[in-house]
Write a protein that binds this DNA or RNA. Structure first.
Lengths: 152, 152
DNA sequence: CATTTAATGATAATGGTTTTCATTTTTAAT
DNA sequence: ATTAAAAATGAAAACCATTATCATTAAATG
């Protein structure tokens, strides 16, 4: 139903990198796929620990970091002292979106509108940057900052 | 030469907010204007302390935070555990730019190219978002993520 | 099965950032 | 000016998310 064999879509990416598919890593991926929020490492840890009490916080951090480096997860910092994580491509989950951040109360609005123009612009820019700086670009993030109605 | 009276461009913004123009704040602004880097709070503190040893680290943090909320400074987190700050509009300083981040070594490339297309896209999107979500948008950030040549 | 390598988890340590609180400075009022 | 009220400051302590350490366990390899 997805990918080759009976593995999930991300398993091939692990293989390419020589990373082992372990129980804790599977649990973390599961959890990320089930949520639509920007979760913190602690959030993931709590849920992971419920399913498998042997999973430690350290491993959650390490796994999230690995996934970030692989481009499977995107790491954000909205300014409240905790990093947030979310799947880059969540099949059947939340779709591509960007963020609108209130500089006062740190509220986050996820917007999915107006992405048609973006597609063209990002595509072209990514290609140019990629070539000029010899980067293997896998992702991007756009954030707008301002003050929300309630804080004004 | 700039703004009204003999004040710097940011003084009016302070007045509007009822924020006082104090010596430590002036020093922090000076320092930010003199650099083209993404400085950490500690960086600013060291320089500020040189000019006026009575300035404390706490005040530097508080000032940077205030400036961020006012939209005068942009705060970044590139994933190395320290927040970075830079002036949004630095007259005579570094020009508008965005970032290309290596997910492995966390190297940052500031790019200033290809901003013509951006101008149009960002302008339109900002206006739409502003209206739809009732946000007073003052700034934006675009980041591309990938793996640099050396890490590949 | 044996061996090597990777991954894990409990704990301790780290360190950037924030809180606390007494003091000082600035502004507004008298 | 003098005084009273409010804002800003700084030293030190507290916080807390994240990372390093290291002994143990699990997985891949031949």
């Amino acid at each position: 139903m997805m990918g080759r064999g009976r593995g999930a879509w991300w398993q091939d990416r692990f293989a390419d990198r020589g990373a082992r598919i372990t129980a804790p890593r599977e649990v973390v991926l599961e959890i990320l796929q089930e949520t639509d929020d920007h979760v913190t490492a602690a959030d993931v840890y709590v849920k992971a620990h419920e399913r498998n009490p042997s999973i430690g916080l350290t491993t959650v951090y390490r796994t999230l970091d690995m996934l970030t480096q692989m481009g499977i997860v995107q790491k954000f910092d909205f300014g409240d002292g905790k990093a947030r994580y979310e799947l880059v491509n969540n099949p059947g989950g939340k779709k591509h979106h960007h963020h609108l951040v209130c500089l006062r109360c740190k509220a986050i609005v996820d917007y999915t509108e107006f992405l048609d123009d973006e597609l063209e612009f990002i595509g072209k820019t990514q290609q140019r940057l990629s070539k000029k700086y010899d980067f293997d670009i896998t992702d991007h993030a756009i954030s707008f900052y301002g003050v929300c109605a309630r804080c004004r």
